[in-house]
Design a protein around this nucleic acid. Sequence first.
DNA 1: GAGTGGTCTAGACCACTGT
DNA 2: CAGTGGTCTAGACCACTCC
Lengths: 261, 261
Amino acid sequence: MARYEQIADALRHGIRTGRLRPGERLPAEERLAARYRTSVPTLQRALSELVAEGLIDKRHGVGTFVRTPRRRVVRSSDRHQWEKDRARRPRAERLRTGSTEHDTGLEVTDLAFHAEYRETKADEDLATVFGVPVGTRLLERMYRTNCREEDAPFALVHSYLVHDVVAANPDLLDAANEPWPGGTQNQLYTIGIELDRVEERITARPPTAEEAEALGLRKGVSVILLRKICTGTDGRVVEVSDVRLPGDRTELVFTTPLTRW
Amino acid sequence: MARYEQIADALRHGIRTGRLRPGERLPAEERLAARYRTSVPTLQRALSELVAEGLIDKRHGVGTFVRTPRRRVVRSSDRHQWEKDRARRPRAERLRTGSTEHDTGLEVTDLAFHAEYRETKADEDLATVFGVPVGTRLLERMYRTNCREEDAPFALVHSYLVHDVVAANPDLLDAANEPWPGGTQNQLYTIGIELDRVEERITARPPTAEEAEALGLRKGVSVILLRKICTGTDGRVVEVSDVRLPGDRTELVFTTPLTRW
DNA sequence: GAGTGGTCTAGACCACTGT
DNA sequence: CAGTGGTCTAGACCACTCC
């Protein structure tokens, strides 16, 4: 076994057994290298393994620390029914809370919201999902929800709608109307669309360089990719959203009810 | 920007634009180092970034290759209802297929299955979920499902049952009876338990060294963690499973039906 | 055996952070 | 300014794969 792996193992063991506690600072690299009788680059290699596993954080000019678990945001599948119920409520009630607040339990005033709209054409992937020809005009909406300035977004969302469908209500084409009270399901309600079901497809991978930047991810954190496909009561796909969530502070919850014997 | 980042960017760009095609071999490190006028360790640092992002694979003694996407296994939430329906079918029918076959579309004979049982005591975490005192005797069952020798398992599963509940049927305590025709829901059926719902909680993170080993994960792949909580018709939690899935070839699908207006 | 990636060294210099 | 991590070098030797 390589020297750097032995060292990584030793440190890993220390962290797992609690000898090195969360938040604790490790000795300087030079000192650690001396303790393990190795060179600094080799010791750094060992540390970089632990960074990749999400066990430690390195802070330039400060030190290396045992990572403390982050507070998790739960995103439950009953949000969809909750959103649907809310879509036909009076405006005052819709104003009060959005889905993120439903998930996090935070107040509206704690959250900052950013939206950007543009027009695109359906690529092969989206055309297949929507069941429309490649090149069909789509409205692409990009969202990010932050916890009031302080730190990185909870989620990066790219949402797609068929342009000609939503154009029935011109207000839906303008990002300036965001955050729309009552969310997308209320927007769809204004043009006579009711949702029948929501399908969500989930996978995970390491972040790209851009995602790490945008979501403020440290190394050693995964990205959860969630594609949400909303189908209307007429069986047509109405909205497709690609959501990227930080793996270290997101927990998705799905409940499947079963029919009785 | 660091030299190694510039190099990583250049290669990343080549891969994304398709100039470097999936499966294609990159020049040897020494040659690449020469091309980018840098030392071998620095070039290696650049490559290791791309490995961490899952863009390339290094094979010792062979070369460095652009990674080709892996075939995905879809795990759909309707498997639960499917399993429930199957649990009361005749033995012959139950023998024919298991859930993994349902997910993958493969035949029973394509799959190898390994199970191991042991007795443990509930730690704080499991005790909370089951709603039993810490230290309660549990039956811990460990499963792995492989695609017939060839390569790494689809999933590592640790499943927990309250020991005294399942002891009503001693056959359920013996791993030698696996794979049990009809799966866990049929096992529970033999002791008079019917499931009411299944809750699944999902998160993702980089693999630990052990998981990378057990799931045969290359570097630069995430692990999806799925905790499945099965609740009986009497409202008690019956089974808790912790499932670890390779992020590069697993897609989870959940469908949420909505009630009509 | 030729060619590939894997590991390691010893030291240099740079960049960032906090006092 | 002292102390920390970040980057880089030039070269050595090892281990693996395939012919």
